[in-house]
Simulated scan of single mutants.
Amino acid sequence: MTAPASTRVPALLRRHGTGMLAVTAAVASIFAAWQLLALAGDRVPSLADTVARLAAEHADGQLMANFAVSMNRFLLGMALTLVVGVVLGVVMGRSRWAELALTDLTMAALAAPAVIWALLTTMWFGFGWLTPVVTVFLAGLPFVIVNVVKAVQAVPGELILMSRAFGVSRAEVLRHVIAPAVAGSTVAAVRFSIMSAWNGLLLAEWFGSTSGVGWRSRYWYDANQLDGFLAWVLVFVLFLILVDQVILGPVERAATRWRSL
């Protein structure tokens, strides 16, 4: 039975209100800690100076141009991560041989920090768009694989056998049985994957690029201008908070809503 509109609207407002409250609290805590560090000594520029530098970067056209470059690389790498990660995760979850063949390799990739991928891809591909894209892909892939494998293996085998006994095709089992079970875990995997992949992107741009957020951060670091460096760190942190709280949080709740039915 569908809930009346009078009850759905307040529930929707509460969900969005909670998300915005979480974002506000996270940003406020970061700013408060920042300001305390600035007051404690002269090694950390004030928040006002940092924001002023960021405004100057925007006025010079550097902010949006470099952020757009980084986002294009990031979205391409994450798209490849999700497609390959979900496919490999489902195959490993359904096939014992695939799991035995790929588990150790996946665990090794999971243990490798993002900086390793950034350095390797810089040596492999040099300066160019391929270095950050491949870094994003390699840094985020193992998180997706591991979570999807566990989700697939958690699907009751009896449910799949019953579906096949009633003549349900493999494609329908994958669509109506496995996909709903994997959806929530995939979103959870994306949250961890984005953190690692975004770090990898910035490091790859730091070491092997002449554009993007990571490159611009290094520009100010090499110039020994801490306010410029921290201005781009602020962009980096705010991006992660907004993506996690505003986008992935509601998507994860929608993907796992069936569990409460």
Rank of each mutant, 00 (worst) to 15 (best):
L105K: 05
L82S: 05
L80D: 06
G167F: 03
R257D: 12
A118R: 08
R218C: 03
R94D: 01
V144P: 01
R175E: 03
T7M: 13
A55Q: 13
M1V: 12
A98R: 09
T122Q: 08
L39M: 13
H176C: 00
F125Y: 10
T24E: 04
P156I: 00
D244C: 03
L261W: 07
L240P: 06
V235Y: 07
A101I: 06
R253V: 05
A171T: 13
L54M: 12
F236L: 12
Q245C: 11
M107T: 02
A112D: 07
A154F: 03
G200S: 10
R43A: 14
L100R: 15
A114H: 09
W232P: 06
A181Q: 04
V9I: 15
I241G: 08
F207R: 04
A48E: 13
H58L: 12
V173Q: 01
I116P: 02
A32R: 02
S211C: 00
V235W: 07
L54S: 06
L76R: 06
M20K: 00
L63E: 11
G126D: 11
M123A: 14
A111F: 06
Q62W: 11
V213G: 05
L230E: 01
A183L: 09
Y219T: 13
L76M: 13
A59E: 14
L203R: 04
V84I: 15
L102F: 15
I194N: 04
V168M: 12
D49M: 13
A112C: 13
